[in-house]
């Protein structure tokens, strides 16, 4: 069962630096959308969005402190989403 008493305190400094990373990545997404990379544009956008989502889940939602099973379920979910989007590109990239 879950250990109720466990708590994971994170310092303000750490949380703030995660926020800065997220903001920087958002800025990067906006910047890269203005550079023409052809079909790679979409892959970069998805990659950056996945990294941002991972930071939020790992740090803000405390998944970092969970067991291997939970972490791997989470990674599998991200991986599955990547496969879903990738499969969609069977269509778009070859249309």
């Amino acid at each position: 069962m879950i250990k109720e008493s466990e708590s994971h305190m994170q310092s303000y400094g750490k949380l703030f630096s995660i926020l800065l990373i997220l903001l920087a990545l958002t800025g990067f997404t906006v910047f890269i959308s203005r550079v023409d990379l052809g079909s790679a544009n979409i892959w970069v956008a998805i990659l950056v969005a996945s990294i941002k989502a991972s930071f939020v889940l790992l740090y803000f939602m405390h998944l970092k402190y969970e067991s291997f099973l939970i972490k791997s379920s989470f990674l599998a979910t991200i991986g599955f989403l990547a496969i879903l989007i990738g499969f969609m590109f069977w269509d778009i990239a070859f249309r």
Partner: peptide
């Protein structure tokens, strides 16, 4: 979960898909 586009064969999707 990976077969959804068989609903779309006549939608103008690419032949590869």
């Amino acid at each position: 979960s990976l077969v959804w586009a068989h609903h779309m064969f006549t939608s103008g999707m690419s032949d590869v898909a």
